[in-house]
Amino acid sequence: MRTIRLSFLHMIKFVRQDKMLFAAMIAPLLAGIAIHFAVPVAEKELIRMTGMPAILFPYYSLFDVFFASITPVMFCFIAAMVVLEEHDDHIDRYLFVTGLGRNGYFISHIVLPAIFAFFITVVLLPVFGLMSMSVAEIFFLSLAGSLQGIIIALLIVTLSSNKLEGMAVTKLASLMMLGAFVPYFVPAPLNLCVSFLPSFWMGKAMAEKEPVSMLLSVLVSMGWIFIMKKKYDRKI
């Protein structure tokens, strides 16, 4: 446990040098403020301009799904970049033969940032969310967002061999979040085409208030993590 903590603190120190840590801490707050205040103003303006009764309001819960995803994805993206950097510099190999081991490295570099993101999201979501949510919904969205962050970090690390490829894969991997759009815009059963994406079930859970979709989102995420962790172990 001590080695995991030290490894995590070492990563924090590394990220702090580029001021990325400060950015990662401030960005969820800025995103929250932007969503909480700008979206209702934009809605009012759009209603005034178009004369329609509501434009963005039916999708307020979709904004909440995205807000729940932002912090974990950002934290896990930064962590993935550190992993790639340490892999390029062959530092990870040396860490694996210490008491930290491969699993300790994985926990300190990928899982712990996601856990931190989970707690931050649990605190910020009720403050900046556009819809009033139950405790279970807040907990579910934060958990599902954090699991999605782990999947994205694993995809970046597994599919890229340097930071340039990491940037390209990040772009691709971040599309995973867009699955949340589908239940809002694509009718069933056609929308089930993207049911392999955890974000689809997050969107469905919030759009249709279905508790089963919450469970499915977590299960699909666990499946992704299981598969990607195996690939990660082979690569690292």
Binding site: V15, D18, K19, M20, A23, I78, M81, K163, M167
Partner: peptide
Amino acid sequence: TSLNQFIL
């Protein structure tokens, strides 16, 4: 000098 700086 680093990608994190560029992103910021």
